[in-house]
Nucleic acid binder design. Structure first.
Lengths: 258, 258
DNA sequence: GTCTATACCCCGATAGAC
DNA sequence: GTCTATCGGGGTATAGAC
């Protein structure tokens, strides 16, 4: 009985996976707006009504895809943060999808900067490799669709990784930024309370700005706004990510800066 | 006869305008993907086939909307650049769209920084006021639609304004940035040739990055990624725009530089 | 859990009368 | 330039047999 149940469960999750895979294919072909249960079913050799046993509505399928995408990019970011890019023998992390993790042979000073850049580069690499899933989660909101609460956890993962790096840097080296102008102080204090009470408010606020700026670069590349202006996206991006790291107070070795 | 012709022309442009207005309304309601000639016609009390006298296809209507949007945000940027935000008596430009006017402190030195911030704030204000048109031009690409060449001119206007500010600053004060790391030098040289041969390559490359970073902030706000983290978007944005200005070598008065 | 059938919507685009 | 009519597609979602 549990066997039967197990087998059924297995079949169910297999089909669910197949549906999501086909849906992702269609996402790539036509965008989120014209993802349709019917054509997914058609392509899978099913009839449309059968899909409703797996996803009660089109929006639920969309939600599943969104959560998967946030989880994928979040996992890539976490893997990059866990690997140590300052170790030349470490092949993992920034350039891989989901690299293996390695021990940490400690770099002297700019280790957190290197991790920051590695995380940013990993997010970019994922985005470039999965432009349509990236568009799904960081592009224009899908009209008529409002994300349920289930998405906020996965959506926060990349941000958490960046916050963690800042936290580590603050603990080991101390992060400091020049004082904020008056009108921003309240805002920064609130942001710090929300995301990282142990960080100085100015750092927390800079983190949020840096986060948005990193994704701005990625979006411009993925969405084609650079329009041939930038040729080697990775090199350009890594350099800019390093400069952005400085904006939150992370200091690299002076030699490597800029 | 010319009168008749003139009247006809007038009627034609009036109807064309009405169509675009209704289309923009629908853009707001359902996004670019479900903008349809049929429903525009319905709402206008016309029959769908009549619209084909004005726009030969749905994509042509979309192109018109895109060009209008690029022109609108470009015009806002140009107006902000032309006004002088360091003159407290100048009511024009940056803050006009909404929001309190807080004249930038007069500064003979940081004038280009003030212009930079004013332009950025004007773009943000336009985006916040017209989120759907913003999404049309800076969000995920519309699936199945490829922009014709007619859009590239209008699309470049905001960038041109930013380049112009950097150029002015370079002419009057000289812009300099630390030397670039080797792998970026070629890229930067090419970028400079493309957009502003008279600027140092490092500045040109930083300009492109800054451009993307500004729009990253705007997109996060407009697309709701900040999700209540940032409360006063304008204050937060102006401050960050000022920091980004420093990244391209624009120097404000040290006092105001957070 | 899958099937057929169905209700009830939507769309872009064109032909041809007026 | 606007109309009716039409071609030929598309979609979500449900009911009910098997």
């Amino acid at each position: 009985m549990t066997t039967v149940h197990g087998a059924r469960q297995r079949a169910r999750t297999e089909i669910t996976t197949a549906i999501k895979e086909e849906a992702r294919r269609q996402l790539a072909a036509g965008g989120a707006a014209k993802l349709s249960l019917r054509s997914v079913a058609r392509e899978l050799g099913m009839v449309s009504s059968a899909l409703y046993r797996y996803f009660p509505s089109r929006d639920d399928l969309l939600t599943a895809l969104i959560i998967d995408a946030f989880d994928a990019v979040g996992a890539a970011a976490e893997a990059a943060a866990a690997s140590d890019p300052s170790d030349p023998s470490d092949p993992a992390g920034p350039l891989r999808e989901g690299g293996p993790r390695r021990p940490e042979p400690t770099a002297p000073h700019g280790r957190q900067v290197a991790r920051w850049v590695a995380v940013a580069a990993a997010v970019r690499a994922w985005a470039v490799a999965h432009p349509h899933e990236y568009a799904l989660i960081y592009g224009s909101p899908v009209p008529g669709y409002t994300a349920p609460m289930d998405t906020v956890g996965p959506a926060a993962r990349v941000g958490m990784v960046l916050i963690g790096i800042a936290r580590d840097a603050h603990r080991t080296e101390g992060l400091a930024l020049p004082p904020l102008p008056e009108p921003l102080k309240g805002e920064a204090r609130r942001i710090a309370e929300d995301i990282a009470p142990e960080l100085p408010p100015a750092v927390a606020a800079a983190l949020v700005a840096a986060w948005a700026q990193l994704f701005g670069l990625i979006s411009f590349e993925v969405f084609g706004q650079f329009n041939r202006l930038v040729e080697d996206g990775e090199v350009f991006f890594r350099h800019t990510a390093r400069r952005i790291a400085a904006e939150v107070g992370l200091r690299g070795e002076p030699a490597a800066r800029s």
